[in-house]
Design a protein around this nucleic acid. Sequence first.
DNA 1: AGGCGACTAGAAAGAACGTTCTAGCGATCA
DNA 2: TGATCGCTAGAACGTTCTTTCTAGTCGCCT
Lengths: 190, 190
Amino acid sequence: MSGGSKERIERVAADLLARDGYNGMGLKAISDGASLPYGSIYHHFPSGKEGIAVAAITSMGSHTGALLAELTADGVTDAAIHAMFGFMGERLQRSGWTKGCTVGTPALDGAAGSEPVRDSCDAVFSSLVDTLAQALERQGLARADADDLATTIIAAYEGATMLARTRRSRAPLDTTAAAMCRLLRDALAS
Amino acid sequence: MSGGSKERIERVAADLLARDGYNGMGLKAISDGASLPYGSIYHHFPSGKEGIAVAAITSMGSHTGALLAELTADGVTDAAIHAMFGFMGERLQRSGWTKGCTVGTPALDGAAGSEPVRDSCDAVFSSLVDTLAQALERQGLARADADDLATTIIAAYEGATMLARTRRSRAPLDTTAAAMCRLLRDALAS
DNA sequence: AGGCGACTAGAAAGAACGTTCTAGCGATCA
DNA sequence: TGATCGCTAGAACGTTCTTTCTAGTCGCCT
């Protein structure tokens, strides 16, 4: 079978978080999805639901971070931005518009109920913004400007994901990506 | 007491949706918050939880839409954009960074589980985009450009709200608002 | 006065939830 | 061989959830 039990749990949890959020993620669904007996879950994650969510968010975050770093290794280009937004469009469409962002969904519905969940989402967002900002700095942007643009792009990315999901259309992602490209061009020009 | 029972239920539900999402919203919490006996809820909303959520989302949406229309009556200005983003910053900070967007939160965590919820969120988003786009058209933008910019602003607004909430800081909202102003200036200039 | 509809009030039911517990299996190591 | 450890396996528990149901209360209309 693919991967250890712990990794399977994390992967299934990540999918459930993306679809139903932290409150909607059930341990029964995790054990079913991971083809694992119910009791095994608490063996791998003694901290229970909260620990699983944090692990899934953190793991998915570092994976996404690596992808983003690779994508922007040669700088933040129009192609990189469209690839980034297009990636989520593909993911959404292929899942029947149900699989949103593994970080964004619990960031909204779980932040008030669990401090560790909020904290791990914050860490992922900060890391993504940082990765983007560093690439922008390499392109000549001042640190503050790079941070601001990176924050805007990540915010637009999460928001466009939300709109695309509720509208069941990639259009908001494509539109927003194009706007981010305009913002990028202006920032690099000055 | 302030308002009828139905309105109180909607208001409490809107707060719970904003904080805990659709899956995290409990009917018990609604009856407590509205100072209403548990059974009364099903008298006012025979359709149960789903109906309450849809009503709260729709009501909050039309209220927000009216506010946005008023704010952009003289066109979409820098001041209007900053007021819009600042409104959410105030709301977040005053609630101890727990009260996010009544539409955005269930849009993510409830869309997969309830089609009516997804649909009502979609309707609100479309209405907000439309309001913004119409104001932009009045300022001379072509319809397609107005739609695109409006979509981007709403997406950025929701995403920045997410970042601000998890980071417990208004900074992402302020930063993103400034970026939207730049985007607006460029669009109006061309 | 009498009846009716709107609303209050909360118990009951049945399912699902997260957590804890005990029992058992199989491999590794003394 | 016997003991130990990692993990499987799922029952049990108490809580919470949504929905439904039955009474009871209040005001209004005829």
